[in-house]
């Protein structure tokens, strides 16, 4: 077991665990979107789980750093909060906010983070970025709503894990990145529609079981 101090509280965790997992296991919440417990090497892409660790001169992502004996971690410094706020606002600026009609309402990770950071879900500093991408409905059993997607990649990870081969993937690049089901008639797709691990993993209801929810 490894002992570390998080926000002046001593916690214990298994060796090899990430700081993020150690905190979550001990009831210390750190905002996160792209992380799943099952991941060996988390992508570190949402940049929300930043913490300050003694010995580092800048906040670092707690999902990519392993615990060490005697480590001193702070999850709530002004510096951390500033970056988390910006990251959240940025994500919100490409998210189509329509909570009332969204199937994720009340179970949405973005709502949870907003609450935790004492932020609203209305943009103040940034303009809403219009991403004119249509809802994807060409999959036999899934539906994808790009304007909600935060590109965390959890769906891809879960599909890979469940099926040995991911049947969805990131496509395109940069701000145009989307989740794609490309591959009509793929053999892999024939088995789709049984596990829905991707839908379950989605933190914002950007992936849905087709026809389960009306728009």
């Amino acid at each position: 077991m490894v002992r570390l101090v998080v926000d002046n509280r001593q916690i214990e965790t298994e060796e090899g665990a990430t700081v993020l997992q150690a905190c979550l296991d001990n009831g210390i919440y750190i905002p996160n979107l792209c992380y799943l417990k099952e991941m060996d090497s988390p992508p570190g892409s949402c940049r929300l789980c930043l913490v300050e660790v003694d010995g580092y001169n800048q906040p670092i992502t707690s999902c990519t750093i392993k615990v060490k004996e005697g480590m001193i971690v702070k999850t709530n410094t002004e510096h951390v909060r500033r970056l988390q706020r910006t990251a959240f606002e940025l994500l919100l600026s490409v998210h189509h906010v329509d909570c009332r009609r969204c199937p994720a309402n009340r179970s949405c990770e973005l709502q949870r983070i907003a609450k935790y950071l004492h932020l609203g879900v209305k943009l103040k500093r940034f303009e809403q970025l219009e991403r004119r991408v249509k809802i994807v409905q060409d999959h036999p059993c899934l539906e994808y709503v790009p304007s909600r997607c935060v590109l965390c990649g959890r769906c891809i990870f879960m599909c890979q894990r469940e099926n040995g081969q991911a049947m969805l993937s990131f496509a395109r690049r940069g701000l145009d990145t989307v989740i794609s089901f490309f591959g009509e008639g793929d053999k892999a797709r024939a088995t789709c529609g049984q596990c829905y691990a991707c839908v379950e993993a989605c933190p914002v209801a950007a992936l849905l079981i087709r026809n389960a929810h009306s728009q």
């Binding site: 081969q165 991911a166 049947m167 969805l168 993937s169 990131f170 496509a171 395109r172 690049r173 794609s180 089901f181 490309f182 591959g183 009509e184 008639g185 793929d186 892999a188």
Partner: peptide, 25 residues
């Protein structure tokens, strides 16, 4: 073309969306 991408996917034994994802990057 889309069918070319499928053909490549089949040859390499990966899913079509993998190939598409890489190509569009």
């Amino acid at each position: 073309s889309a069918s070319a991408l499928q053909m490549v996917a089949k040859h390499l034994g990966v899913s079509g969306c993998e190939v598409y994802g890489v190509a569009t990057f």
